[in-house]
């Protein structure tokens, strides 16, 4: 395991319980984790294994029942709602399975929505160029394909130059060819901007592009695998 001072995230004893009494459900059972800065991490696991809960807690969308999360030196679990919003606004980029673009804004405007409120963002055009969408900048989501929409979502997530990028099933709604284009965009951002990236997926095939693979089941991390030689997404197939 890497040293603590190099960690983007550090989680200690994360437990998340839904419900009370008889109907108690453990989503996370005492997870300890360190994510080194700049790494590409893939979370694998079946439905209900706790990977989304873990990502939500790390991303400041949810709070654990027990345990602590540190982002760098700051304790996220001690933040109130206002500070969590600020944390997401300045440090985190999200990519959703269903893109969640604003249909009334063009690709460029969807990105500008975030850059307008960020501290030191790149230009929306630059972010869109990173994902190869320069020519389609002034199109509305309804005029873009699924893969294009997802690449806009990635541009929107990285335009603020976040320290972390969370992607929840980014290729879940795409065919494999389009999915690979999207993964290439994610990998490029990870390399060029040195953004710590966490990707949730059902798809074990994607694991080959990660520096680190976390295998989750029953609310616990069952296995951590380190890829010495992560492969290019272009070489992936599923």
């Amino acid at each position: 395991m890497n040293t603590v001072d190099n960690a983007a995230f550090r989680a200690e004893g994360l437990t998340k319980v839904y419900g009370v009494g008889e109907s108690k459900v453990y989503a996370l059972r005492g997870v300890d984790l360190q994510v080194p800065r700049g790494e590409m991490v893939v979370l694998l696991g079946p439905s209900g294994s706790g990977k989304s809960t873990l990502l939500n807690i790390l991303g400041g969308l949810d709070s654990p029942t027990e345990g602590k999360v540190f982002f760098g030196t700051r304790e996220l679990t001690a933040f109130d709602d206002r500070h969590l919003t600020l944390f997401r606004r300045e440090s985190v980029g999200f990519v959703f399975q269903f893109y969640n673009l604003i249909p009334s804004l063009t690709a460029r405007e969807n990105v500008a929505l975030v850059t307008e409120i960020a501290r030191d963002p790149m230009a929306p055009e630059e972010a869109l160029a990173l994902v190869g969408l320069e020519p389609r900048m002034d199109h509305f989501p309804a005029q873009l394909s699924g893969g294009e929409q997802q690449r806009v979502a990635i541009a929107r997530a990285i335009a603020k130059k976040p320290q972390v990028l969370f992607c929840d099933e980014p290729t879940g709604a795409l065919d494999s060819q389009t999915g690979i284009v999207v993964l290439q965009a994610i990998a490029r951002v990870n390399h060029e901007l040195n953004t710590t990236t966490m990707v949730i997926t059902h798809n074990a095939g994607i694991a080959a592009m990660a520096d680190r693979v976390l295998q989750m089941a029953d609310g616990e991390i069952q296995d951590i695998r380190i890829n010495a030689e992560p492969c290019d997404p272009a070489a992936l197939s599923w």
């Binding site: 919003t85 606004r89 985190v92 409120i117």
Partner: peptide, 16 residues
């Protein structure tokens, strides 16, 4: 609702 919640996730405040 979904659009607005997405914006909240992206870091827009409740007021925004």
């Amino acid at each position: 609702g979904r659009e607005l919640a997405s914006l909240r996730v992206l870091g827009l405040t409740r007021g925004e």
